[in-house]
Amino acid sequence: MKTATIQLESLACPSCMQKIEAAVKSVDGVAADTVEVLFNSSKVKLGFNAEQVSIEEIENAIQKVGYEVKKSRVK
């Protein structure tokens, strides 16, 4: 289990939190109950299984719902 912190473009609309949260949770390999979308710091924190899914796939899922990923850090 790895944890990732993904920095997004600055979030402005509150409904985007729901969207991003749902998008990230829908990715297989992401631990759904660890997903946390931070509105003010415009970050997503999550835990995922590195054997099942790559960070790129998670970033893709977020970009698909319309939000730019600036950078991400995996620990």
């Binding site: 409904s15 969207k19 319309g66």
Partner: peptide
């Protein structure tokens, strides 16, 4: 266009949003 796209992406995730 962008609004409808956002709405569609959200709907695919079973979310009804402001879009």
């Amino acid at each position: 266009l962008p609004i409808a796209l956002q709405a569609y992406q959200a709907l695919r995730l079973k979310l009804v949003t402001i879009d």
